[in-house]
């Protein structure tokens, strides 16, 4: 029983990171119907920006205030990156075939990875201890304080996003743009600005995920390491499981994927972890081709 709870907890911790990242994929897909392959690189930059900010401000002692500052700084820098990405790489291709945009995204992804190696080096980086590390024993379950903080932060951000999308007029404008760009424009919605906003928000969430990964694991791999892409790929899978383009779906998909991974790794040979994750995707897509919360798409004629 205690190992079950242990896997559950770990699954929620990993899953909430997938969810944060999945939101970026799903929002961009919802609005532009294209997969932003460079999203995992923005996530990677979030981790490296956090590290550099910590070094820059000489944060050697765990401090919640400093950690919050670093989080906000990394989110701001990644938002800027996302904004520039959209403005200069994707916007000029707004009317181009979708495949062109997809290839551009792959190019941008490679560019960021290599530029990242140039700037941040090619070695594993020890992440500064922004938060004090405590381990509790609750009912036979080992709980790491940083994991709890990561989950709480991730959920707070997701609640914030949900409020923004479903409770504010920008959210309404975003949903209107995702339904029909042209009509949204004609009804007075500044479509380009809404698309920029989508990239900015998605990138900010990716930055938070990057920082949380750094804090949780204590180290970050070099910018072009395949683990970043794998993380992104899984988050993308999470978005598809939940129903791509659907905000609550991305959160649900992320958690499901995190949980299934941890339970597989716990009860079955852990080498099967990723295989099971993708098997889950295939099964869900066979049963519900549009994801768990996705709606049936009627082809426009």
């Amino acid at each position: 029983m205690s190992s079950f709870l242990q896997f559950l907890l770990k699954g929620i911790a990993v899953g909430s990171l997938y969810a944060l990242l999945a939101l970026g994929y799903t929002m961009v897909y919802g609005i532009l119907q294209f997969i932003n392959f460079a999203h995992s690189d923005v996530f990677m930059l979030g981790a490296f920006f956090s590290w550099r900010l910590s070094v820059l401000f000489k944060i050697n002692e765990p401090s919640p205030v400093a950690a919050t500052g670093v989080l906000l700084g990394a989110m701001a820098l990644c938002s800027l990156t996302g904004f520039l990405l959209e403005r200069f790489a994707y916007r000029p291709l707004r009317r181009a075939p979708r495949l062109n945009v997809l290839i551009t995204a792959i190019g941008v992804s490679l560019f960021i990875e290599n530029a990242g190696q140039l700037v941040f080096g090619k070695n594993v980086v020890q992440f500064p201890p922004l938060l004090a590390e405590h381990t509790f024993e609750v009912g036979g379950v080992r709980v790491r304080s940083v994991e709890v903080i990561a989950v709480v932060t991730a959920f707070a951000l997701m609640v914030g996003l949900h409020t923004l999308v479903y409770r504010t007029r920008m959210g309404k404008a975003m949903r209107a743009v995702s339904i029909d760009h042209n009509i949204a424009g004609l009804m007075g919605i500044p479509v380009d600005r809404i698309i920029s906003l989508t990239f900015v928000i998605g990138s900010a969430l990716a930055a938070a995920a990057g920082l949380l990964v750094g804090i949780t694991y204590g180290q970050i791999k070099q910018p072009a390491d395949s683990s970043w892409v794998l993380y992104g790929l899984k988050a993308f899978v999470a978005a598809v499981i939940g129903g791509i383009g659907n905000v609550p779906g991305a959160m649900l998909g992320g958690l499901l994927l995190g949980l299934s991974e941890q339970f597989v790794a716990g009860y079955l040979p852990s080498e099967l972890r990723d295989a099971i994750a993708f098997l889950l995707l295939i099964i869900i897509l066979l049963v519900r081709p549009n994801g768990l919360l996705g709606r049936r798409v009627v082809e426009k004629v």
């Binding site: 042209n182 424009g185 004609l186 007075g188 479509v191 380009d192």
Partner: peptide
């Protein structure tokens, strides 16, 4: 002018 500007 862009469509949203014309709407405005």
């Amino acid at each position: 002018k862009r469509p949203y500007q014309i709407a405005a």
